[in-house]
Design a protein around this nucleic acid. Sequence first.
DNA 1: ACCGCCATGTAAAGTGTTACATGATTGG
DNA 2: CCAATCATGTAACACTTTACATGGCGGT
Lengths: 185, 185
Amino acid sequence: MKRRPVTLLGFALLGLLQKKPSSGYELRTIFTETPMGSFSDSPGAIYPALSRLEQRKLLRGKVQRGPGLRRRRVLHLTPAGVNELKAWLTAPIEQADVASRMGDLMLRFAFLDAAVGSAEILDFLKSFERALREYLPQVRQFLADNGYLMQKSARLALEGGAMDYAAKLEWVRRAIAEYKKEEIP
Amino acid sequence: MKRRPVTLLGFALLGLLQKKPSSGYELRTIFTETPMGSFSDSPGAIYPALSRLEQRKLLRGKVQRGPGLRRRRVLHLTPAGVNELKAWLTAPIEQADVASRMGDLMLRFAFLDAAVGSAEILDFLKSFERALREYLPQVRQFLADNGYLMQKSARLALEGGAMDYAAKLEWVRRAIAEYKKEEIP
DNA sequence: ACCGCCATGTAAAGTGTTACATGATTGG
DNA sequence: CCAATCATGTAACACTTTACATGGCGGT
């Protein structure tokens, strides 16, 4: 009986809760009001996702009351939740991740330094850099092989994709430099 | 009884079929072997999606046989399918599209010049440019307002997002120049 | 004869979307 | 007291994932 892996939304919730225990409503407003808006802020998405995480005992809730406070359930990670999150954050980076799940990688990185030390962060970034460095020539090769027979807009769109990878590679190298500066002061 | 809109996968299939009538298997191999790999190539995703499009009469299939050919259903768009696709391709571009559905926009653009003339393509690109030009300062403002209290990796991730938008803005301007060159020869 | 690829599908289960539902509290 | 916001959920439905199932054809 192997259960399915936690979804991306699930990890996003775990990551936010690790930084700061919050109510479902607070999590929703984060999705509406910050650049994490790629996630749905609808209660029909978030509350069931939180329930699933709670069923797996990755988080727990405590009802908070107080003078001038509305009733709300503040959720926080269990030790198992912290482990699950860390396992996701530090999982090895594959070609397929940069090829079609770059957003996941950036989300992982955003949560990373709340969870691990700068040595592991540098490992993550170096592994990210390597995957990008190896994948970019493949996209360019595909363009060189097929670009001439594609329609103009399709070719331009693909070139736009290649530019994305190139920009990300530049970014990841800058990020590595930032963390190296910090490591050896 | 309003039916739901066609999904992104549905439009991807419509777009590919408009360029060239194909079998379900051919469509699957496109998803496995080209940079359109963000879509699932599993039969459990594609065949039901094709059935839905057929039920809506957006496409039809003809069983092809021939000497040395395996039996296969070649699918092609109906006039209603062409209309549905064009409506999606030429729909107005909102802030929310660049903010969290950039991939959709690039897919639309890739299919665009098989479906409309270069005047409409320029309209699309100008509208894309405008949405990006207006959205980018908002991301930078968010960074300026909140960056100082974010963790380093979270801030770097957000800066990476801003770089994406900037790179895309550069790209869209180059694309506009390309199409202007063509329009006034 | 058999393996691998071509080709099309179905079934079960989990996840997300859309819409609905409910009630408490604060501010005007 | 009334509207807006805070706060949490549920129900129906559509979609995707994963796994299974089937059979024809080509080459060795």
